[in-house]
Structures are given as structure tokens and as C-alpha cells.
Design a binder for these strands. Structure first.
Lengths: 341, 341
DNA sequence: ATAGGGCAATGCAAAAACGGTATTTGAAAG
DNA sequence: CTTTCAAATACCGTTTTTGCATTGCCCTAT
């Protein structure tokens, strides 16, 4: 039954239905709000690709939005010329209105959040150093730009640091999936693959995976509350490897572990996206095309009782949305020129 | 497992990535536009149910939209009290801004359509009388309210009246699905079930479907270009009935056919939603719980060459959208106590 | 000229948002 | 205490949106 009739002429006279036709909303329903937002972003930058990056959606999606808008309006809004985009007269007329309207809405929303006590708050956020280093900073920077009235007090240590247990409201923790009653949302589940210094890979050229792992020291990062070597064990299980995952050297901090790997002290399990920089500049190589998803990853947690705090709820939902949208682009180029060595 | 070449050192840091963080859009992306639209409709009427009817979506959907908005804002926008809804301070602050913004957008869109030649047009629309009678009028009324600057010149006859073949730009035709190159969109696919006058149903009480159909005259509506009795034939096929679908009496106009059925002259195949009125007040009864979807239904067609006409394209897309996400809100005919087995 | 790169459009499959139905809840009226 | 009405919720289907990969276009550099 794919197609359904519209509200047929309602029952003739046997239903007072005090409401008159009330059609002011007919046009409202038709208003392509999301397409207008897309158009605005594109028109402001005069670039689909650029707008896509800034909105954290794909260029493809934007292209479609704008096309639809143009189709609905019956006229082009942007002229696609080889030198770039140019606003047509119609586009030029539309852009300022859209910008003004959305700015107004944004400002009002902001003001209401303010009144609700959401703003001028200080959120205490905790996250592991690795996460902070790779993507946390750009994430927080973005959040602050979107909500300048919410300040962030940032903590970063290798301990777990759950909210209410430590001095923070929101924590991003590295953990495995759990099904308890806590408010935990997955942000980034890692895919682990063995990595080592290029010299080691060279020396071991030709070995199969199992031999390789047996020939080298396994490096671990200690995980609070987890048995020693869980990640290696999960990896071994996934590829039917006969190795001793509990063998090796464990450190507190993943950064230290990576340092050891880079300096040729053994093999480490990494997520290629998380250490893209080290891999890209050759300090770390991933000689085998074997990655497994253990379910471990970074989860965002808040204390259940804090869910009613508007600022905390806002931060949480914003981060979650941010991650669902952007698993890749935000991760690749967030930090430039660093990468501790 | 083969060794992978040391992770092809693709673009290391040589990607200026000219774009600065550019976060003005971070908040834009977050703006819950659809939820705001929902809130506006509810707040204006101070009623979820009423707004749902006017927006042609369910109360449930609206409830969720508003909830989400409240959650994002961190404060209630409407106070649900027993006497009805009341705007909170926050809601009262938000409503005018939203209304103003959306009105502005609407007006601008309208103006652009105008400039594009979409407006101040006269559209010639053709539809079958039955369709017009049952739902066409309310449809057109609504369209006119949403787009007052587009006039409608309405034709209604039993002929097919395809655009460009007759004096119309847009036609709604009763037909079967076809896969030709014409621009044809299904609006309402009918589900056919036998119906007759109550006296006949009474007289035939206890008969099975096949006996019932054999005992009564079959009524048809003549369909241009279709073999005599297609609909009855499709129905018989669906339920493995041994009847002679080509038997019976055919008329030009479905309304006439229905009249004959009502006055006890035979059995007709109807869509229960389309003749909800006749069924509700007992003039027509559907004694068997047997409905089949033949694929026949009402299709909207425009001439391919007309697709570039903004006004025609607008009408078309508006009608299609109107049909896809409309429930049976106003229609829900209180069909009680009928439909005996 | 020709190869290469940047950018928007598009086919297709996957994912997410959205909507509907049915049900529950909660308050008020009979 | 039952009945009624409106909003919230559970559950689930499906439409819409999105991303990826690819195409096509035009410009630029070789």
C-alpha cells in the first residue's frame, strides 16, 4: 500500500471541526529549510567543496540540496562557471535573507539556552591524551566557536576519570562496549592493526603475520580494569594466531607506547586513522593488511543524573552528532605540524 | 599475509588546506530547522493535534520534534497543563522570531518564483470527476492558499485528457502503471473491494464471494483503452474466482456507476477510502473483506517538455509531496459496524 | 597538444531521520 | 469510579539523506 490518499474532503457536515482549513502552514511545510541552509553555506563560500567541509557533510549532499532548491524555485541560484561559482541575481537576492533569518534563529536559540542556564557554564571535560592529541583539540575548538558562551575546563590523564568519580562532568574514555545503565555513547571504535618502525618491517620482510609477531616484542598500553594484553588477544583470536598476547611490555600511556614502537622497540596495535600522521611520514609502518575491530574504542560518558543539566546535555548531543557526521574528515587533518617525536 | 609496501607516503604535510577552521557553520549545522518549524506550528495553535492536522503529519511526530527542541535548548517551550498548552517565557520569546524568519524566507522564495515566471500563471489542470469530487477540491483549495499567485483553470471530464493533447498543462488520470517515457507519478493506487446497496447485501447474506458475484449484476466504469471489465478480471484473478468479468453493465462515469450500485442495480468495485462517505452513511456496503491492489490508480502526468516550466514543475512536486506524506487525518472515516464477513 | 588537477554532478548502496500506528499516561469531566 | 481527551512513548516501516566512487568538464602546466 505505497500511496495513501490525502486528507480527503473531510466528512461533510457531521463534524464541526472548529478549525478552518488553516492553510498558512501549507507553504511552511513546503519550505525547503535544509536546502536553504545548504545553499547559504555554498553561496557564502562560493564553493561546494569548501562548504561541504565546513558543514561536515559531503559535497555530493550539498550539490543535491542546491539542485533541489533550484528546481523548486524554477531558476538557477548559482552560475557554475569554470573560474568558479557566481551568484545569479536570484541567488544574490536569496542569500542575505537566508543568512539573516538563520542568524536570527541562531541568536535566539543561544539566548534561550543562556536563559536556561546553559550558557556561561564551565564544563569540565576529561579525555585520554591520545584522543585529545589526535582529535580532541579540534573538536573542542569547534565547539567553542559554535558556543562561545560555554567554557571548557579540560583534563587529560591516562586514568579513566568517569564523571562524578573525578572532577569532571563529561568524560571520553577508552573502553569496550558495555551494556550497563550508564550513559555511554560510542564516538570512535578503533580498528587495530600491527605497526612498527620501518627498520623492523624491513628486517622482517617476507615473514607471515604470525612469525612476525613472534619475532618481535609486543607493546601494550595498560588498560585499567582489563586483563593484560586484551587487545593483542582479541587480535590473535580474530586471525587465528598462535602467539602469546600476554607477553611483552606495557606502558601507562599510549603515546609512550607509540614512542617505543617508533624507536624500534617492538610492535604495537594501532588504529591507522588515529596515527595517520606517524604512518604518513613513515615513522610508523603497518606492514600487514590485517585489521580487526575489537569493539574497543572511545566512548562518551556522562553521569545519568547530569543528563538534566542543559549544558551537559548540549555538549553531549553536539559531540555525538559531530561524530556521526564526520568520522573521517575531522580526523584526518585536525592537527598540523606537530606529532610529538 | 603479504607485506604491504611501507604505507605509500602519500600527501604528508604538503596540503596547505587553505581553509581556516571556518566554524561559523558549526552552529548552523546544529540549528534544528525542522524542529523549529514544528514548534512554530504547535505554538501558534497551542495544540499538537491541531498543528498536526494542519501540517499533515501525525501528532506523534510533532510531539517528538518539540521534545527534541526542548531538550536541545535545555528548557521547556510549552507548558502542558490540563486546560491546554501555554507558552513558557522561552517559548514566547522564540515563537515570534521563528515566525518572522520563516515568513521572510517564504516571502523571498515566493518573490523569486515570481521573478522566475512561476507566479501569476494560470495552470490548466484536468482530473476525473470522481477524483475531483473526493479529494481534488480540497487539494486545489490548499494549493491556492499556499500559492495564491498561481491560478487554476480546472477541467474535469471522463476522457483521459493528457497534457498537450487537450487544453491542459497537468492531468490526473486514472490508469494502470506504465513504463513509458511520460512523466507519470502515482498519487493514489486504489484497493478495490466489491460494494453494493445494503438491501442486496442483506438478501445475499451467507453466500460466499463467488456465489455473491454470480448472483448479481457486475457494474463497470468504462476505461478508455482498456478491455471491458479489466478491473473485475483483476479482482477475480486475485481471489481465484470463477466469474465472467466481461458480463455486466458499463457506464462512462464512475459517479453514475456508483449511483446504480446505490440504487440496487448491481455490484461495483470501489476503493473504500474513495467512497468512504457513501459507506459511512450506509448507502453502500462492502460485505466481503476482500480487497485487491490492481496497480490501477490516479497518476499525475505532465508533458515532458513542460517539465522546465517552473509553475508546472512546482505544482507537480507540490502535489506529489502532498500525497506522499499525508496520513488519513481528515479522512479517517468512522466506518463502524459495516463490512460483515 | 596532452597530461594532470580541481571541482561539481550523478549512480548506487547504506544509513539516518522521519513518520505512522498503536498504546500508554495523565488529568478532568461525568 | 468510569469515561474522555490530549500528549507522550514504544515500536517499526520507509522515505529521505548521505557518502563513496565515478564521471565529465574546464582550466593549467608541461
Amino acid at each position: 500500500m505505497p500511496i495513501r490518499p490525502p486528507a480527503a474532503v473531510d466528512e461533510p457536515r457531521l463534524k464541526p471541526k472548529s478549525l478552518p482549513p488553516e492553510a498558512p502552514d501549507a507553504a511552511r511545510l513546503w519550505l525547503p529549510l535544509n536546502a536553504l541552509r545548504a545553499f547559504e553555506a555554498v553561496a557564502r563560500r562560493l564553493s561546494f567543496t569548501g562548504a561541504a567541509a565546513s558543514l561536515h557533510i559531503s559535497q555530493s549532499a550539498l550539490s543535491r540540496h542546491v539542485s533541489r532548491l533550484e528546481e523548486l524555485l524554477g531558476c538557477k541560484l548559482l552560475e557554475r562557471r569554470s573560474q568558479g561559482l557566481v551568484l545569479t541575481k536570484a541567488g544574490a537576492a536569496l542569500l542575505p535573507v537566508v543568512t539573516k533569518s538563520f542568524d536570527g534563529l541562531e541568536a535566539t536559540m543561544q539566548a534561550l539556552r543562556h536563559r536556561a542556564g546553559t550558557s556561561q557554564r564551565m564544563l569540565r571535560v576529561h579525555m585520554p591524551p591520545t584522543f585529545l592529541y589526535v582529535m580532541g583539540m579540534s573538536l573542542l575548538r569547534e565547539f567553542r566557536l559554535a558556543f562561545p558562551d560555554i567554557s571548557i575546563d579540560l583534563f587529560s590523564s591516562n586514568g579513566v576519570g568517569l564523571p562524578r568519580a573525578t572532577v569532571c562532568d563529561i568524560a571520553i574514555v577508552f573502553d569496550r562496549p558495555r551494556y550497563d545503565d550508564a550513559v555511554r555513547d560510542p564516538l570512535w571504535l578503533i580498528s587495530q592493526t600491527p605497526a612498527c618502525a620501518p627498520e623492523i618491517a624491513e628486517r622482517c620482510e617476507g615473514m607471515d603475520l604470525q612469525a612476525f609477531l613472534r619475532a618481535n616484542e609486543l607493546l601494550h598500553t595498560r588498560l585499567e580494569g582489563e586483563p593484560f594484553g586484551v587487545l593483542w588477544a582479541a587480535f590473535a583470536r580474530r586471525f587465528d594466531l598462535e602467539i602469546s598476547p600476554e607477553r611483552g611490555l606495557a606502558l601507562d600511556s599510549e603515546r609512550l607506547t607509540v614512542e617505543l614502537a617508533i624507536t624500534g622497540n617492538g610492535v604495537i596495535l594501532v588504529d591507522v586513522d588515529m596515527f595517520a600522521k606517524e604512518i604518513a611520514d613513515g615513522r610508523l609502518v603497518t606492514p600487514y593488511d590485517a585489521t580487526s575491530d575489537s569493539g574497543f574504542g572511545y566512548y562518551l560518558t556522562v553521569h545519568p543524573d547530569d543528563m538534566s543539566d542543559p549544558a551537559i546535555a548540549l555538549f553531549r548531543s553536539w559531540v555525538i552528532q559531530r561524530f556521526t557526521h564526520v568520522n573521517r574528515d575531522g580526523a584526518a587533518p585536525p592537527v598540523d605540524g606537530l606529532s610529538a617525536g
